[in-house]
Design a protein around this nucleic acid. Structure first.
Lengths: 245, 245
DNA sequence: CCTTCGAATTGATCCAGATCAATGCACCCG
DNA sequence: CGGGTGCATTGATCTGGATCAATTCGAAGG
């Protein structure tokens, strides 16, 4: 049962056929008849920035896709040290079939709209629909690649390279979303606070802030407001990130 | 076509039914008839410690399971900085269906026996056999959890905690393999060189060596030879690792 | 037995990033 | 308008782990 009043303004209708993530989400390989079933099973739910969608270790009865917004996955140690272990963007899947609980907190980084399913009915459908399972495997392999890329960043990159690498990811995302070339002049929102960014990069807030200031002072990036970033020369930024071409 | 002469002494026959990883590998959910097909498709191959099984970026035509031994996944930056991003043990799967190339080098840490398939025929079988896909998804989710756990280690733990965490993993593995309780007195081989260990933990060889010596001097571990480790008090080691109970 | 050679340990010094401490800067609310 | 309140920036200092530099150990071979 869908709840139209919970739709965010950007989600034009509650029918799967109109969904902005129709061709990228877990349902992307589904045929029309399978989609009709998902359409019946799904419901939308909205969260505000800062809300915790899932608490680490708590069993969760819902699974679903991010339709709009951005959520973070975070692990916290007893003494309070925190490490962000992933960022979820629209079309990314939330929750793991066959697993009751998540080993990390999931927190809305911005306002988030979720397309969610009951775990049980989704798992039944998954068992009967190989397209879903295949797509889920693809997406999980992509997440694994991203996680391992991030391990290299956390283990071996300097603070400056870490910041630059993060900005490269956002600039590429901006180019993709706005159908520009990756080399073009990019302008995008940093999405997360300095504190979250520090948690993502394995740094302190202070070091994070200092390195951003340094990149700004050297003209590699330009800041408008606290969160908007412009990248006049993408290749220069890329060189700072320690990546190969 | 199997090649009996390449069998390692521990692999008693080349029939899947006798396989030591029969109930943990990608084939574990398969029925007898499906297993019979895999039995026809598979071949064994052995590698020596230090051999590169897969070069980063190179297309690979084979996929398969580790039957015996241990292999590492490593990313290298242009300037030579290296980060190990995973360790594969018996029953772990090597290669990614639907993906031509691996983004990291795969290197035999010890002598390795592989049960391998041609990519093309394996992918065809995967399409027709949901059990394989489901198991692969489970295993990939496990790898993703391990990778994210490691991100916390790389981003936030001290050198001492990193070493202790690695030893905790090996001690748990020893307990599992030898059907002991995790708290029991463990004795195991460290598998990898100090250099590889440094690459795994995001440290230098020197820091790695110093921290191991420190744990030894404080009686938290005991060393016999360079590579054999004994853990008299598992809980004490666990406390040093920064993990919660 | 001694020599060799790579891996491991140990010591001395250095520095990138952490920590401690203000200060700046919006934005809200009484 | 003034004074919170919560980020973000900037400055001063400290330190854990890196770097540079010898040993030491142990297995392999003559």
């Amino acid at each position: 049962m869908t709840v139209p009043t919970l739709l965010s303004p950007d989600v034009r209708s509650d029918r799967c056929g109109d969904c902005p993530i129709r061709y990228r989400a877990v349902c992307s390989h589904c045929e029309a008849d399978q989609l009709a079933i998902l359409d019946q099973m799904k419901s939308y739910r909205s969260y505000s920035a800062g809300d915790t969608l899932i608490w680490a270790g708590e069993p969760v009865s819902k699974l679903g896709s991010i339709v709009k917004g951005c959520a973070s996955l975070t692990r916290t140690m007893e003494d309070g040290r925190r490490q962000m272990v992933g960022l979820l963007f629209p079309s990314d899947f939330l929750g793991r079939p066959g697993r009751e609980a998540s080993p990390y907190d999931v927190i809305a980084a911005t306002d988030v709209t979720l397309c969610q399913f009951e775990r049980e009915s989704f798992e039944t459908f998954l068992g009967a629909t190989p397209q879903i399972g295949n797509r889920l495997l693809e997406m999980t392999l992509d997440e694994l690649d991203a996680a391992r890329e991030w391990m290299l960043l956390l283990g071996r990159k300097t603070a400056r390279e870490k910041i630059a690498s993060f900005l490269v990811i956002l600039a590429r995302r901006d180019a993709l979303l706005n159908k520009k070339f990756p080399g073009d002049h990019a302008k995008f929102d940093m999405i997360i606070s300095r504190e979250s960014l520090a948690d993502y990069l394995g740094l302190t807030i202070e070091t994070t802030s200092r390195q951003i200031s340094a990149l700004k002072n050297e003209g590699i990036i330009r800041l408008t407001g606290k969160r908007m970033v412009e990248v006049p020369d993408f290749d220069r930024l890329l060189r700072e990130s320690g990546e190969d071409a």
